[in-house]
């Protein structure tokens, strides 16, 4: 049967189901929106042939494809980052927001939005349309670097200190964001609010070029951390006993999360719940080994975000809902349902 002796789903059937779901969601995502595309047209364009509808090719290649790819990458990176941090902190409630990455990135982005016309005019003139994503990326990376410096003592990374400094950084960034919100004009307030609700609306090949290298790097590096992260689940000392370089693993994981989430927030704003819910779901169905949790989190996280993005475009078409709201609306009740049905942790 498809369940193994431990009552878990077999990996192969699970992989087949997830890949089918991903393919279906991918088609739905590129087909739906303000200008619906016909499935035969999509397949023709992807096959390199001329579509019946001449606009279809343009919409698909210039709008929908980059948006789909970016959404999938962002979802995958957020879910994998959640899984990495949960393993590292040995806490199933850890989330990329926890160590302050998202807060740092969003503060930088909001600074660009609100101060772009005054103090940061030079930066805006220099970076042009890339000003916001690049600033968000550096904001996120700088926050991780700061938290990391604080948590490192005598060559050891203190995980508890990292968590506490994350809380402090979140508070500081939250206050600074509040201050900027207070002084923002109505227009700035509007774009700021949309940004904090998360959106893939700006997705294009340019955004993909900025964010993708870091996100792909994060996804490539993370599987190498799977075995030592399994050892982390037994305690930090056990990692060393089993012969893994605990400090190197910690640093690599933090760096991967910092770069990946920094890049994800830079191109899509704040999108919650993926990092928390997806690894939970995978553990519930397939077990807690990171060799399973990391790849499946990437696949399911990507699929889920793309699905949410499609839905966000369909429900109020031709307008679209912010995807961060969509995720929270779907993820929140879903998570509560899990909690009520059985013990999640």
């Amino acid at each position: 049967m498809i369940r193994d002796a431990a009552g878990r789903f077999g990996h192969t059937p699970a992989l087949i189901i997830v890949l089918c779901a991903a393919a279906a969601v991918a088609l739905l995502s590129v087909a739906s929106g303000a200008y619906p595309l016909a499935i035969p047209d999509i397949l023709k364009v992807l096959g390199g042939r001329e579509a019946n509808d001449p606009v279809a090719s343009l919409v698909l290649l210039e709008v929908r494809m980059p948006r789909f790819l970016l959404g999938f990458l962002v979802g995958a990176v957020l879910a994998v980052s959640g899984a990495l941090l949960q393993g590292l902190f040995r806490n199933p409630l850890a989330d990329p927001g926890l160590i302050g990455v998202s807060a740092g990135a969003s503060l930088a982005a909001i600074m660009v939005i609100v101060l772009g016309s005054t103090w940061l005019g030079g930066w805006l003139a220099f970076a042009g349309e890339w000003a916001l994503p690049v600033a968000a990326f550096f904001g996120g990376s700088a926050t991780v670097f700061l938290a990391w410096r604080i948590a490192n003592r005598d060559g050891q990374t203190q995980v508890a200190t990292l968590l506490l400094s994350g809380i402090a950084i979140n508070a500081i960034a939250g206050a600074a964001t509040g201050l900027l919100t207070f002084y923002a004009t109505d227009d700035e307030l509007r774009s700021l609010t949309f940004w904090t609700m998360g959106s893939l609306g700006h997705a294009g090949w340019d955004e993909l070029m900025i964010g993708a290298p870091f996100m792909i790097l994060a996804l490539i590096v993370s599987p190498f951390l799977a075995r030592p992260l399994d050892a982390f689940l037994l305690g930090e000392s056990v990692v060393g006993h089993l012969g893994y370089p605990a400090n190197t693993v910690k640093k690599a994981a933090i760096l991967v999360v910092g770069l990946g989430v920094g890049a994800a927030v830079a191109v899509s704003g704040l999108i919650g719940f993926v990092g928390l819910v997806v690894p939970h779901l995978v553990r519930l169905v397939l077990g807690a080994s990171h060799r399973v949790v990391l790849p499946f989190s990437a696949l399911i996280g990507g699929t889920l975000l793309v699905a949410a993005d499609s839905l966000a475009r369909i429900v109020v078409a031709p307008a679209e809902l912010p995807i961060g709201l969509m995720m929270a609306l779907i993820g929140g009740p879903f998570f509560l349902g899990l909690l009520m049905r059985r013990k999640v942790v």
Binding site: A6, S237, L242, G243, Y244
Partner: peptide, 30 residues
């Protein structure tokens, strides 16, 4: 370190497992 792990094994006083790992998975980690 990896070589030492094959010649020196350590059982700590307490190992807390909070994640759904099976007995077989934990034994196999060693």
């Amino acid at each position: 370190p990896s070589q030492l792990a094959r010649h020196r094994a350590v059982m700590p006083q307490k190992v807390d497992v909070n994640f759904p790992l099976t007995v077989e998975e934990v034994v196999a980690m060693g």
